[in-house]
């Protein structure tokens, strides 16, 4: 074998297995899913072509629209809750505004390691009539019969779930920001302090501009992560009561694996992908603006 073909064979051996598995498990099913979404199929008979009918059905279904609203709430909490909070916490530790930053960092990061199923059941317990939230509220309100009724409200049923999402993931953003803050040269900050800059000025003029890129990256993570959110809500409420806490991923799961509407389920998953790409595109446009603002 010549040197050239030897190199080519080695390349194939090295990269081939990963590419094959990836193509087989992810790329091929996505294409398959796209074509299934134009059909009506129960999984047993032959798929029947119905054009865009499934998409029309989805977009006119109030359950889907409520799920869409819920998932947008999750995206909003991730972007406007987790990211700023994570940043504040990271900043506090990075600037050593407190003693024992390492300890706090470790504790706040802890929920990331716990499975969403465990988190869901734990919080269900906390909110249950025999849970610490209920006990605390009974003490504060001096009402021994208090129980949490928020899940029965169509408008506010998502609030506890949004809080738990904040609880679970803020630590991850914090850790990412700490690592990136540490890459800012300390001499820049020292110089600013010598020039008499206040804490607020250091943050606004020195630190934030150099963090724009990483905040963008985490915003992308937040969006794709939010649209994937399934485990926590599925384990906590199953989307109930009466679809109040349903998100699109649960909607897809139930329609596919409980009602065997494979074509419909595929169409929902295509909608999820389009939505996720659309939101990420939007974020990209917004951050381009920011970048230009700082350059100017």
């Amino acid at each position: 074998m010549t040197e050239k073909s030897l190199k080519r064979v080695s390349y194939t051996v090295l990269t081939g297995p990963a590419i094959l598995i990836y193509a087989f498990i992810i790329i091929f099913p996505i294409v398959f899913s796209l074509s299934l979404s134009f059909t009506e199929w129960s999984g047993l008979d032959t798929p029947k072509l119905v054009g865009l009918e499934q998409y029309v059905r989805i977009l006119t279904d109030p359950v889907f629209l409520h799920g869409l609203r819920n998932i947008l709430l999750v995206v909003a909490v991730s972007i406007f809750g987790q990211i700023p909070l994570g940043f504040v916490l990271a900043y506090i530790i990075y600037r050593r505004l407190i003693v024992g930053g390492r300890f706090f960092e470790t504790m706040i990061f802890l929920p990331i390691t716990i499975s969403a199923v465990v988190v869901a059941i734990l919080w269900n317990q906390i909110f249950s009539p025999a849970g610490i939230y209920t006990a605390l509220m009974r003490m504060i309100r001096d009402d021994p019969r208090y129980v949490l009724g928020i899940f029965e409200s169509k408008t506010f049923a998502m609030v506890p779930i949004l809080f738990i999402i904040l609880w679970m993931y803020t630590g991850m953003y914090m850790v990412i920001y700490i690592a990136n803050l540490q890459r800012i040269s300390p001499s820049v900050i020292e110089a600013a302090i010598i020039d008499g800059a206040t804490e607020g000025q250091i943050l606004g003029r020195v630190i934030l501009p150099s963090m724009v890129n990483i905040i963008f990256t985490t915003a992308v993570f937040a969006i794709s992560g939010s649209l994937k959110s399934f485990d926590l809500i599925y384990a906590m409420t199953g989307g109930g009561p009466a679809h109040y806490t349903e998100v699109i991923a649960i909607y897809m799961y139930v329609n596919t694996f409980k009602y065997y509407n494979y074509g419909f389920g595929s169409a929902v998953s295509v909608v999820i992908v389009i939505l996720s790409l659309g939101l990420i595109g939007l974020i990209q446009i917004i951050f381009r603006r920011f970048e230009r603002m700082y350059e100017a």
Partner: peptide, 10 residues
């Protein structure tokens, strides 16, 4: 960026 759910059915 791909969600697990988009490949689950196929």
């Amino acid at each position: 960026l791909i969600t697990v759910h988009s490949v689950l059915v196929p």
